[in-house]
Design a protein around this nucleic acid. Sequence first.
DNA 1: TATTGTTATACTCTATAACTATA
DNA 2: TATAGTTATAGAGTATAACAATA
Lengths: 157, 157
Amino acid sequence: MDALLLDRLLQIGELFQRDMARAFDGSGLTTARVHLLWVLQHAGPSTQRDLARLCDVTPRNITGLVDGLEASGHVRRTPHPTDRRSVIVELTATAAETMTRMRHDHAALNHTLLDAVAPEDRAAVQRGIAAIAARLETLVTEALADAAAAAAEPAAS
Amino acid sequence: MDALLLDRLLQIGELFQRDMARAFDGSGLTTARVHLLWVLQHAGPSTQRDLARLCDVTPRNITGLVDGLEASGHVRRTPHPTDRRSVIVELTATAAETMTRMRHDHAALNHTLLDAVAPEDRAAVQRGIAAIAARLETLVTEALADAAAAAAEPAAS
DNA sequence: TATTGTTATACTCTATAACTATA
DNA sequence: TATAGTTATAGAGTATAACAATA
């Protein structure tokens, strides 16, 4: 029975992805592009370089995503005021509206999911999920650091 | 504060994906291929048609995934005993070992995550996560059905 | 010399449509 | 006529490497 917790969490992750893909189907938006819009909304107008760092993706990839979002009118490229190598990317008014709607949907979904939990369990669930997220974050960060160290020094040990 | 629950769940989903990708990095395996192995392990030797249904993906996609897994020695194509159109796909001994190791890692991770939750919260968390998964499943299923209905009858309403 | 973004190239996942072999 | 799988084609996301313009 112990396996249930992890399996449920994986299932929830899959369902989020599927719902996400469905919600943007036909709009020209994709998960990766929405993620970029999300980052832009939080960071404000940014260089592509910064977006690459924030999305943890190569600069080349950002070029492609911004190309697509520019073509669909969600994003605008502007020259950097002082550094002529850089490009500033910012949301258009349309995209800003989309993101506002998305925040509302986000809040509504949060409410719906919390509502599915028995009232007397809610506090424990909030604590438990936070603890799980924190533990997982630590595990993954350490694993990545180990992998990087192993790659950097393949002769050692 | 209410937004925390959903954000944590999304974060957990992202962390799983990142850890998954890291774990198979360099092995030739990818998320999609591991998923197919996982399905195969549970369903036993299957036709590509069945795999397409189980993975909720087109038959063409299965062809590509099986091609890759066959080349890396994880999977074997066998003729169907009675239907010469069909192909039976089955795990190799190597892949079966890999899956066994994966199941152990899975169980260990489940234990670790459960261990991160305060003992007095564990029962509530198990109940709560199950309830959230069930609610989300219902929501997504309904949304997909609505989308399908709208696509089938675009003139109605 | 270092940094920003882009072009060039390649691989994986995914889909649809047309086609072959078989039922 | 219907089904199982493949070839053909296409597009998105991702990566590395080489290159241009600028700092």
